[in-house]
Nucleic acid binder design. Structure first.
Lengths: 199, 199
DNA sequence: GTCTATAGGAAGATAGAC
DNA sequence: GTCTATCTTCCTATAGAC
């Protein structure tokens, strides 16, 4: 009854796992719930993956790849730094507003990784990845527009990551779109004020 | 063998639960692990608490009370707004640096509450509490020093909460004290620049 | 590879002797 | 109230027929 290759089953199981985790939370994404979501019998699980750990690793890899390519795609260079930053930040924020559950899942997986033996480095790698992507974004835009920053790029990148990450988290919990958008606008303007023409 | 009142047992079990959650994570804080930490037999649990849910509610209540009284105590009014804000923020940051596990637990409990049926409102209440406390802090300091803010207080409070919460989270995961402190200093200075003498 | 059936263990909660 | 022993359920993982 080989209706589908093991590779395709693996892909579908990872997708199903993400669906279940997004809908019901990481803790409820049991092997049973995942195979049920993928409409496969339970026994399938362990000839597609050696263990549940192996599946979760692939889930985290997939989620991270999505997040990074999202940030990459958000680079939106316009005529001025202010406009470029605003466009990029708004692109990100749009995604948060339309896909809150996806962002919530990344927070959950970070926590999961921080506690799960065998995933010790994963949370750190995840945040280093975000920070690196943001740093590259700032460098890229500085080069294209021939500007420099008043603050060291690592500090500026950390600042942006802090605001974006912190605001995403508290918006997921509290809502309050007007205040959240106001904070984001204020920070965008403030950061644009830290830019100098390259001499 | 009544060596201790049921009330005292309850208190000790809540303490033990916090110890286990801080050390091993919320998911590993099982009734068995908690009574073992408190050095009590398993059967004790269910005549002290009707269910595990009841214990977790008390744990969250205790943690929140700690957090709020910490923010209250951090209000540190000096001669100028800048100095007051700096002193208060440094007081908070000092606590993060010396008690990271405690702060990590609050993030874990927030996630737990967001997913656990019966705790739907708890995460929101928690963040509203933080935001309210920060707003009160800003109002208080504005009154004492007879100043106003360029931004509406709700937006400013949200901005501060975002930065403080986001930075705490990414410092727990990434470390990098110099950059984190630089971000905090920068934000403190920036916010101090948003203050006007009351006319 | 594919599936059913089940092992083996840990979770929350309860029964019932004292 | 106090404790031991146990119930029920659900988890990951495996055994073994096809």
């Amino acid at each position: 009854m080989a209706r589908m290759s093991a590779d395709e089953r693996r892909e579908r199981l990872v997708e199903a796992a993400i669906t279940v985790m997004t809908r019901d939370g990481v803790a409820r994404a049991t092997t049973r719930a995942i195979v049920a979501e993928a409409e496969m019998p339970l026994g399938v699980f362990h000839y597609c993956f050696a263990s549940k750990k192996e599946l979760v690793e692939q889930v985290i890899g997939t989620i991270n790849a999505h997040a990074v390519s999202r940030v990459m795609a958000m680079t939106d260079t316009r005529a001025t730094f202010r406009e470029s930053l605003r466009a990029s930040v708004q692109g990100y924020w749009e995604h948060v507003l339309t896909h809150p559950a996806e962002h919530m899942l990344t927070y959950e997986l970070t926590q999961y990784a921080l506690r799960q033996p065998g995933f010790e480095g994963v949370a750190r790698t995840q945040y280093e990845l975000y920070l690196g992507t943001l740093t590259a974004f700032l460098d890229d835009i500085a080069n294209r527009l021939a500007v420099t920053y008043e603050l060291p790029t690592p500090v500026l990148a950390r600042y942006l990551m802090t605001v974006v990450d912190g605001l995403t988290l508290n918006w997921i919990i509290l809502g309050g779109e007007p205040e959240a958008a106001a904070v984001l606008d204020h920070v965008t303007d403030h950061v644009a004020g830290l830019v100098r023409e390259r001499s």
